[in-house]
C-alpha cells in the first residue's frame, strides 16, 4: 500500500551532552517537507550528526534534549525511520539478499517467499540481482552502498535518515548512486547530512546550514529547478554562498 509522505517539524531544539558546558544545539528550528530531501550542511562538530542520531534514537538516554519533534500526522517518529550511514553496515556473514531482508529477522516477521521476492525485486531495481547470493566483501564500495539502499527500501519507512552515505565513493559512482537513491526514495521524506555542497544543492528540496556555537539552522534558498539538479549557473551561485557561510563558521 502506498503511504502518504510525512513531514517533520523540529521546534526550538536544544541538545547538550552530559558534563559538557556548552550545548551542541540551541533554539534550532527546521521544517522538513514531506516527500522531499532536506540536506544539512555544517562544519565538523557542528552538531548535525548528533541531531540525526537523536532523531534515529541512537543517542544515550542521559543526553539533555529540549524542544519538540512533531510529525505531520501527529504520531511519534520512533519506529518510523530507516537509517543509512557512511559505512554500508552490511553484515559480512550474511549474503546480499539476507542483508536486504535483515529488518524481517528483528520484527518477528518470517522471511516468507513473498518477502524474498520483494527483496529480489529491490535488488533488481538497484541492479544487483546477479550477486544476490554473494557475500558483501566480494562487492565494490558502490555495490555495497546499493545493497544498503535496497535494505533501507525493504524497511519501507516514511522517514529516511542518511549520514553521508555517498561520501566514501568515487565521484562517478557517487553521482550515479545519488540519482538512483533519489529515484527510488521519491515517496520518502529524507534527511541527508553531507559535507559536500554540490551534493546538497543537487539533491535538496530544502537546505539548511548549521552555524554558530551552539548551532542554529540557517535556511538557504535553492534554485527554482527541481532536484536532482544539474550543475548550472544558479546552483553554482548557491554552492558559492554555502562555501562562504561555511568558511565564516570555520573562522
Amino acid at each position: 500500500m502506498k503511504q502518504t509522505p510525512l513531514g517533520l517539524t523540529i521546534d526550538n531544539a536544544g541538545l547538550r551532552y552530559p558534563n559538557v558546558n556548552q550545548a551542541i544545539l540551541d533554539k534550532l528550528s527546521m521544517q522538513i517537507p514531506a516527500g522531499q530531501w532536506t540536506c544539512l550542511l555544517g562544519r565538523s562538530g557542528s552538531g548535525k550528526t548528533s541531531l540525526l542520531r537523536y532523531l534515529a534514537g541512537l543517542l544515550d538516554s542521559n543526553v539533555e534534549w529540549q524542544g519538540n519533534v512533531i510529525c505531520s500526522d501527529g504520531l511519534a517518529l520512533q519506529q518510523r525511520i530507516a537509517y543509512m550511514a557512511q559505512q554500508d553496515l552490511l553484515l559480512p556473514w550474511l549474503s546480499v539478499v539476507d542483508n536486504v531482508c535483515l529488518s524481517y529477522r528483528f520484527n518477528k516477521q518470517k522471511i516468507t517467499p513473498e518477502v524474498t521476492e520483494k527483496a529480489l525485486a529491490l535488488l533488481d531495481q538497484v541492479g544487483l540481482l546477479a550477486v544476490r547470493h554473494a557475500l558483501p566483501q566480494t562487492l565494490s564500495g558502490g555495490m555495497r552502498q546499493r545493497v544498503a539502499l535496497a535494505r533501507t527500501l525493504m524497511q519501507d519507512k516514511p522517514f529516511i535518515l542518511m549520514d553521508e552515505p555517498f561520501s566514501a565513493l568515487d565521484a562517478v559512482t557517487r553521482h550515479k548512486l545519488q540519482q538512483l537513491s533519489y529515484t527510488l526514495l521519491k515517496d520518502k521524506t529524507v534527511i541527508l547530512i553531507t559535507h559536500d555542497p554540490q551534493e546538497a544543492v543537487r539533491l535538496a528540496g530544502r537546505l539548511y546550514i548549521l552555524t554558530g556555537r551552539p548551532a542554529q539552522a540557517e535556511h538557504i534558498a535553492l534554485p527554482i529547478s527541481r532536484p536532482p539538479r544539474d550543475i548550472d549557473a544558479d546552483s553554482a551561485l548557491v554552492q558559492q554562498r554555502i562555501f562562504h557561510l561555511l568558511e565564516q563558521d570555520y573562522a
Binding site: V126, G127, A134, T138, G142, R146
Partner: peptide, 15 residues
C-alpha cells in the same frame, strides 16, 4: 528508472 547499466556492470571483485 535511471539507466543502471553502466553501474550494474561495475566489475565485482568476485573473479
Amino acid at each position: 528508472m535511471p539507466d543502471l547499466s553502466p553501474l550494474a556492470s561495475t566489475p565485482s571483485r568476485h573473479q
